[in-house]
């Protein structure tokens, strides 16, 4: 078991390393740099010093090694747009709003999705099934920015119930009001995915022989549904839950931009528009590390919940 884990851990870090390298060079090949507009009117010597201060005068490959060295010490560098601002602080500031919205969306989306999926599977071929499947397909058919805009139009412009955009960092009623629409917009897609997944999973379990055995020995009703069917159907759902938990911190680019939430996603989008190399890089590294780590955790958890999958003995 530990040998497998170590191997997995090693390949995880290798993947992360390759990804960081690719992203580093990809970002640096993007034409235009944020310092150029600031340094335009400076005398040549000052300009050279300016670039040297941020290490941009050295060859790209040297810059790469310097960056990697700093990264290993947990230093993400400084923003090139908001000079003097460490990336680490910008990111730490942006994480809480993203987390609030995404935890709401995930809790609401996963529970509703799973509930609807189970309902659809048990009522297979009847109208609840068709309704749930229709919602599920609709959920993946409407772009989230359209849904978000439609929500703003309905609840803010027409009904005037909720504030259109904005955020407050203090938890409370005001924050809750700001979080309602982003939560709905984000959870719609989650509901769609989970209800489809759960329906297929429950149907699959219902066809298994052990369900027949359980029925034959007289287990019925709630006990059958909970102990035999649902417990086993949750397993596939874990696979898609992993990346989504990473998404709690990462947030959503589109939804956060639309609702003006100063979260991880919005900061990332603005860094892209400003061509802020170090910040794009720093945030991409975090996104990737979280994503790869979540896949790793899913692998381990999968083996723990389902003894049929013996990943550890491979």
């Amino acid at each position: 078991m530990s040998k497998y884990m170590l191997k997995r851990l090693f390949s995880m870090f290798l993947t992360l390393f390759v990804v960081i390298t690719i992203v580093f060079f990809l970002i640096r090949m993007v034409p235009g740099d944020p310092l150029a507009s600031m340094a335009r009117n400076l005398p040549e010597q000052v300009k050279a010093n300016f670039y040297a201060e941020y290490g941009l005068d050295k060859p790209l490959i040297t810059q790469y090694f310097i960056y990697m060295k700093h990264l290993l010490h947990g230093d993400f560098g400084e923003s090139l747009v908001y000079l003097g601002q460490p990336i680490k602080e910008i990111i730490l500031r942006a994480i809480p709003p993203s987390m609030v919205i995404n935890i709401h969306a995930l809790l609401w989306g996963v529970t509703t999705g799973i509930g609807l999926g189970i309902l659809a599977a048990y009522k297979r071929g009847k109208w609840p099934d068709h309704l749930v499947m229709f919602i599920a397909i609709l959920g993946v058919s409407i772009p989230s920015f359209v849904l978000a805009t439609a929500l703003q139009y309905l609840f803010s412009v027409q009904l005037n119930w909720l504030p259109t955009i904005g955020w407050t960092s203090e938890p409370g009623m005001k924050q809750f009001k700001y979080s309602i629409m982003p939560t709905i917009a984000l959870s719609f897609g989650i509901i769609a995915v989970y209800s489809r997944y759960m329906r297929a999973s429950v149907l699959d379990v219902l066809n298994q022989d052990y369900i027949l055995t359980a029925k034959a020995k007289g287990v019925s009703g709630f006990s059958l549904a909970y102990k035999h069917v649902l417990r086993n159907s949750f397993i596939p759902a874990i696979t898609i839950l992993g990346p989504q938990i990473a998404g709690i911190i990462v947030g959503s680019f589109v939804i956060e931009s639309i609702f003006g939430i100063p979260g991880f996603g919005q900061v990332y989008v603005s860094a892209i528009t400003n061509r802020d190399f170090t910040q794009i890089l720093g945030q991409t590294v975090i996104i990737n590390a979280l994503y790869i780590f979540s896949l790793f955790v899913v692998d381990i958890v999968y083996g723990l919940v389902d003894p049929r999958i013996r990943v550890f003995n491979k």
Binding site: S11, T15, L16, V18, V19, I22, V23, L26, I27, M29, V30, P31, V250, F253, I272, R275, I280, T284, I287, N288, Y291, I292, L295
Partner: peptide
């Protein structure tokens, strides 16, 4: 493929289209 998949696709698409 594993490396490519572990880069969130939207991030990569954004970077590529910037480039």
């Amino acid at each position: 493929i594993e490396v490519l998949v572990s880069i969130p696709s939207l991030v990569m698409v954004i970077l590529l289209s910037l480039y």
